[in-house]
Design a protein around this nucleic acid. Structure first.
Lengths: 152, 152
DNA sequence: TCATCATAATGAGCCATGCTCACTATGCTA
DNA sequence: TAGCATAGTGAGCATGGCTCATTATGATGA
């Protein structure tokens, strides 16, 4: 009895992890076409969320070291997605700021994501979709209760 | 109407991607305690799935270059998880083989995963669990139909 | 048999992404 | 103004991807 349940729990986790891997791979594949790496894209997402800010702030938001942010911003500056602007309030700091190309890239990613969500869910029976969302919310709540915190 | 649906699809995909990130982070954190990196662990999982085999076979199974496998196996040999045994049928090749420590490590990972699946799902109402699994299967089927292939 | 081509692994060397530690330049405060 | 704190970066390391060249071995055909 308990054994039977364990097996179905494991099968469910296997599905979840498989989905995790497949979604990750797909995201990374899509990125390559835009000349972006996963880490640099993550920085762009963060920048969109918190707005032009110091590298220190980006490091805190992404939970990586300030030194790593220097490297990522170097790459994004070299490829024209962001610029380093002087911070009028602190001459030690820079304000990492989108270029037009950077803004366009993030907008494109958002559009791609919307399209992908349509492809994933539009054909799903409403009841099943609702069941999936309820299940995901349950899992996310459980993870939160287990002490895992969202990176956002 | 269509707009409303789009928003709920997006919200669902956001949940899925958030879950993806959180599960990934958690897995990687857990690994560090065992002295394993994510890539080396992935190789151990692969090796468990396909059995002692050449590095070439591992590269094919993991969809990475043979050169990268050389590096990963170097690390796993240095830390005592696997050994390189001569292939009796082909003196060019090696058979990557678990040590006792390697077998124990994989067994431990499996046990951790079973425990984690219990923590995630044991408290979930059976109906919601069933709804989650049905939804996940639907999504996996859709991904397959979209041309995304499982890495296994 | 032996020359040729194919294959398994690795050396050399590149890039990206993470880290720490040390250092510079600047800000802040007593 | 002296001294501590903070933002960013240089130096240097590890991991994990890659390609290309090389070595050793296997396999095949003349």
């Amino acid at each position: 009895m308990a054994h039977y349940d364990d097996d179905s729990y494991n099968a469910a986790l296997d599905r979840l992890l498989l989905l995790t891997v497949m979604l990750n791979d797909d995201m990374h594949r899509g990125l390559a076409t835009d000349g972006l790496t996963p880490s640099r894209t993550s920085l762009l997402w963060t920048l969109r969320r918190i707005g032009p800010c110091s590298q220190k702030a980006i490091a805190a938001a992404m939970q990586i070291s300030p030194r790593t942010v220097t490297g990522l911003v170097d790459g994004l500056v070299a490829t024209g997605f962001v610029t380093r602007e002087p911070d009028p309030a602190d001459r030690r700091a820079v304000l990492v700021t989108f270029t037009a190309k950077g803004t366009a890239a993030v907008d494109s990613l958002i559009a791609q994501q919307r399209e992908f969500s349509r492809q994933l869910f539009a054909a799903m029976p409403p009841e099943r979709f609702a069941g999936l969302v309820a299940g995901l919310d349950d899992v996310l709540g459980t993870l939160h209760a287990l002490g895992l915190r969202s990176p956002f």
